[in-house]
């Protein structure tokens, strides 16, 4: 497995998606605002669909199914982003902030 042949090897893509996933988990923990957490969640979803496409390219018998699944993940992620942004705008109208430290009404 040499450096220039990495793009033909399955472990490369598995490691790439693991890297994206761990970036997403790191961002979910350190971010203070809800929009920052949404960005990290998008990274995690992208890691999932990278994994699907990698196994689709190297292992699956029918290489169309993994691509269809990646398209489904994209549609769900787009819907999720739209809903999350509109919830954030509604929250911002009520609290004048989208900092996760301020949205603690249920703790009291």
């Amino acid at each position: 497995m040499q450096l220039l042949n990495l793009y033909n090897c399955l472990p490369t893509y598995v490691v790439i998606s693991a890297l994206l996933f761990s970036f997403g988990v790191y961002g979910l923990i350190v971010r203070r605002t809800v929009i920052g957490m949404l960005i990290s969640a998008e990274l995690i979803l992208a890691a999932a669909s990278t994994n699907f496409l990698a196994f689709n390219r190297f292992l699956a018998p029918d290489p169309a199914i993994g691509q269809v699944f990646a398209l489904f993940i994209m549609a769900i992620a787009a819907a999720e982003a739209a809903i999350a942004i509109s919830i954030m705008i509604a929250v911002y109208r009520n609290y004048k902030s989208i900092d996760a430290d301020d949205l603690v009404d249920l703790q009291r």
């Binding site: 497995m1 450096l3 220039l4 042949n5 033909n8 090897c9 399955l10 472990p11 190297f58 292992l59």
Partner: peptide
């Protein structure tokens, strides 16, 4: 076990 298709390095 590492899967490379094709395995040769260019």
């Amino acid at each position: 076990t590492i899967i490379c298709q094709p395995a040769a390095s260019p």
